Simulated scan of single mutants.
Amino acid sequence: MIDDKEQINYIETLLASDDYQTIVLQLQNIEHIYQQVSKAELIDSSWHQSSELTNGIGISPNDAMRCFQGTSRTAKYLKAVYQQVKRLIKQYPDRPVELVYAGCGPWGSLITPLLVMFKPQQLQVTFIDVHSTSLNSLKQIVNALQCELLVSNYVNLDATQYLHAKEIDLIVTETLYNGLHSEGIVSIIRHLARQLSEKGDVIPKRIVIDAHLIDMKSELKLLNSFDHALGQVPTKRQLLENRVFLGNMFELSKDVLAVIDAHQMNEKPSDNLPCKALFIPDINDEQHFALSTCLYLTDEIVLDEYENGITYPLCMSLSRQYIGKQVLFKYQCITPVGFIQQG
């Protein structure tokens, strides 16, 4: 059993702080507790096994657990979820907020530290994961937190196949790699967002993919001038000193997906989503074509470049035949998931 006063102190301190080292300490405190509670699951043979799904891979329980150590990512997600749940509780005072966490992993890292802050009549959480091992571990943590009454269901399923019994008020997921390659966040949000309530929302609210030509040698030199142990990363302005901005290529949000769905309503169902065309200028030998990823968890809380592995640039090959021309990409939602050149 976890000391609820201790847990509340950790999460309240984290939510109230913008100091990186303070946040690191609180996450380490929570991680230590979770390691102790879920330790028995580490002997399960499926702990290190990923799953190949139609719409992208489901990373292994072990890899999902390790994501907790991404300080900026975990802290910002927790702050965003807390803010959105508080907002929705005010919007729906007469019933619990229905939260669906897709790809929760063995710790439910982006939700479970917050459970001690709410009552069952305020919040009901559904955890979804394709790995039963993850859900077994997660149940131990929720039970140790004495928060069983806040969890309405544990669903062992591909989230793109899940139908919620009620309208969903908040979707939470972090099923992505940089440049939206390999994992299934686009398909997951596209499917679940169709089940949102009128005032419902998604975390992340928006994911913006921009295209650049990047001088990676100069950019790495810039990166090495920052102390990553203190959470320091370059600003957008500093990064653009070594880049040529080509344009916004793709944006993922419930509103964008609704427009795409409306456009494709009377067409043959497509696994490919449209992207904006890009003009490719001359490329020198030092430059790489790359996609940047920025997560707007809410309008105010942003996980920017280099704050986590999921927001590192994704370098892609680009034929020199496109120099001086427009190139069009499509986003492929089925495996292999990611952006594909159309010419």
Rank of each mutant, 00 (worst) to 15 (best):
I11L: 08
T13E: 04
S17Q: 02
D18Y: 06
Y20T: 13
Q21D: 13
I30Q: 11
E31N: 15
K39W: 02
L42N: 05
D44A: 12
E52A: 11
T54I: 15
D63C: 08
C67F: 03
Q69L: 01
L78M: 05
A80I: 07
R95P: 03
P96I: 10
G103N: 06
L110K: 09
L110I: 06
P113M: 01
V116F: 05
D129P: 01
D129C: 01
S137R: 01
I141H: 03
L149R: 03
Y154H: 02
L157S: 02
L157Y: 01
L157V: 01
L157A: 04
L157R: 04
L163P: 00
A165S: 15
Y177H: 12
L180N: 05
S182K: 14
I185C: 10
V186W: 07
L192A: 02
A193C: 15
A193L: 00
Q195T: 08
Q195L: 08
Q195I: 09
L196V: 14
L196N: 12
S197G: 07
S197R: 06
S197F: 04
E198W: 00
K199L: 14
D201V: 10
P204E: 03
K205M: 09
I207D: 07
I209C: 08
A211K: 10
E219L: 12
L230D: 10
V244T: 15
F245V: 09
L246P: 02
N248T: 15
N248W: 02
S253V: 14
D255C: 11
A258H: 12
I260D: 04
I260W: 15
A262H: 10
H263F: 03
Q264S: 08
N266E: 10
K268D: 01
S270D: 00
K276L: 07
A277P: 13
P281E: 07
D282S: 14
D282W: 02
I283P: 07
D285T: 15
E286V: 12
Q287W: 12
F289P: 09
F289Q: 08
E307P: 10
P313E: 11
P313R: 05
C315Y: 11
Y322T: 04
V327Q: 07
F329Y: 15
K330H: 15
Y331T: 03
Q332T: 03
G338K: 06
Q341A: 13
